[in-house]
Design a protein around this nucleic acid. Structure first.
Length: 466
RNA sequence: GGCGGGGUGGCCGAGUGGUUAGGCAGAGGUCUGCAAAACCUCGCACACCGGUUCAAUUCCGGUCCCCGCCUCCA
């Protein structure tokens, strides 16, 4: 499988660096002081897709997703730097660990709802403060970091020649204090970033350190945890485009500064999701959640389907129209599947099916070209050469990458409750007898039970109405 | 100021130097006790201005506009 590497701006083959052949992936995970929105989820979907695509090829994957539960992030909506965790604590009347627990759970539920497979480890930042302190000490001893007067530790960007290689920024061009709220005193260069910050008054989450009470800088978390679980060299690191700078740039500086060598092979960044042309973000407040989809009667997996229609690196515009179109399209697909479910696949795969399968796999392996994969899928759906049973088997196998639960309708058809089956039978009898009045009343009854009625050559077919 | 991504038909969005992306929506039709589903057919594009070319939506130059990052961000 090939992936676009932000570091080299080229599409590169994913080659496991460890001799065990396991592909090691680190995906930047959620901050858990509030609920993840669809924009965040698009990035997590990218990580999931990388993982599924590799497994689809028969690879073994080790996937780590961090949970950022340290309230070191600040919020500038009020024009002042405020600890976001602290805001949540005040708003919800819960202690920081409870807030973190609550939103970690919500994140896992939302992920599952959009078909994201569970990661193998979900390390929490608060469980790894000692590792972060250790990494900071290493960086100090290697001359990449220094202790400022007030008990904070900063990374010295000028000590790391490669600084800027991911984002294309150069130290000289970075504007000082562009958006920095608390202009830190004691930095040697304005681009220096904190590895450890001394805790001011009112800071809820604080730890002891060699430099006094404080809390870790944002970026150390990922360096410390990725190397702890994946080793000093690993294969793929994913994240949203906005993390390129400064987060990942700083992570590279830390990890490579501490080890003296390249740590991550491929950096894969996902494009942002927009809502009516505007970036969706926690700070602008134009947020759509999984629960909003459910309220609109949209299958959360339809969102997953929708994201496949756009290349992962492109920005994508979200609208209710687009979501509804995807929802309808997905439902239709599942119903087509249900229609083929009764036919067994042929003993030998047809040439047509083999060709489609090859093209589908090629598209997925080619830097996750899901729009192309969907074209192949649509060709398969309407192919005159592939028998129904084979179509079913083909799409079902592709669903291990797609994760769209394509077999849902087929499954529901089989699992009709007995009382529904009974009404269906009575309607079929009435129709056979030409008693259309009874037939229509049975239809109404089924509608009342939440089922839509269709006549087919094989008799009444019903499907659950969302 | 620095770095980067875009402007495609009603909507979302692929892609390409000449030949239909696809989905959703719309129109017509087949089928049907009715209805739905399904299937068939159709319409509607490539921001603007120049240039290169036999031929540009696709390449080059310029213009306009939109969006992201530049230490809160997926």
């Amino acid at each position: 499988m090939r992936l676009f590497n932000s570091l080299t701006s080229r599409v590169e083959e994913v080659v496991p660096t460890h001799p065990d052949g396991v592909v090691r992936i680190y995906g930047c995970g959620p901050t858990v002081y509030r609920q993840a929105h669809l924009g965040n989820l698009r990035t997590f979907l990218l990580t999931d897709l990388v993982r599924r695509a590799l497994e689809f090829e028969g690879r073994t994957v080790l996937l780590i997703t961090n949970i950022t539960d340290v309230g070191h992030m600040t919020d500038d909506s009020s024009g002042q730097a405020v600890d976001r965790m602290q805001i949540a604590v005040e708003d919800e009347g819960l202690a920081p660990p409870e807030i973190a627990e609550k939103y970690t759970k919500a994140y896992l539920e939302d992920s599952a709802a959009i078909g994201i497979l569970a990661s193998h480890v979900y390390p929490r930042a608060t469980d790894h403060v000692p590792e972060m302190i250790e990494l900071t000490e290493t960086l100090i001893s290697r001359g990449h970091a220094y202790i400022a007067d007030e008990g904070s530790v900063y990374f010295d960007v000028r000590s790391f020649p490669g600084y800027g290689k991911l984002s294309g920024n150069s130290i000289d061009e970075l504007q000082p204090g562009h958006r920095e709220l608390e202009v830190a005193q004691g930095k040697r260069h304005h681009a220096d970033f904190s590895l450890w910050k001394s805790a001011g008054a009112g800071r809820l989450m604080r730890w002891d350190s060699p430099w006094g009470e404080g809390f870790p800088g944002w970026h150390v978390e990922c360096s410390a945890m990725s190397m702890k679980y994946l080793g000093e060299r690993f294969d793929v690191h994913t994240g949203g485009n906005d993390l390129k700078f400064p987060h990942h740039e700083d992570e590279i500086a830390q990890s490579e500064g501490a080890t003296g060598h390249r740590v991550v092979s491929i950096w894969a960044h996902g494009g942002h999701l927009r809502l009516s042309g505007q970036k969706i973000s926690k700070s602008t407040g134009n947020v759509v959640l999984v629960s909003d989809l459910v309220e609109q009667g949209i299958d959360p997996l339809a969102y997953r389907y929708l994201t496949f229609q756009t290349r992962y690196r492109s920005e994508m515009d979200l609208s209710l129209d687009a979501l509804e179109a995807a929802d309808r399209g997905l439902r239709r697909l599942r119903q087509r599947m249900a229609g083929w479910a009764g036919t067994p696949p042929p003993a030998e795969r047809s040439d047509a099916a083999s060709g489609l399968d090859r093209r589908f796999r090629e598209a997925v392996a080619d830097d996750l070209d899901m729009p192309r994969a969907l074209v192949v899928l649509n060709e398969a759906v309407s192919s005159a050469e592939v028998p129904d049973g084979e179509k079913y088997a083909l799409l079902a196998s592709w669903d291990s990458v797609l994760g769209l639960d394509l077999e849902r309708s087929a499954r529901e058809d089989v699992e009709l409750p007995p009382d529904v089956q009974d009404v269906v039978r009575r309607r079929d009898d009435a129709r056979a007898a030409g008693d259309y009045a009874t037939s229509d009343s049975m239809r109404e009854r089924l509608t009342g039970m939440g089922y839509e009625v269709m006549d087919t050559a094989g008799g009444t077919r019903v499907r659950r109405r969302a």
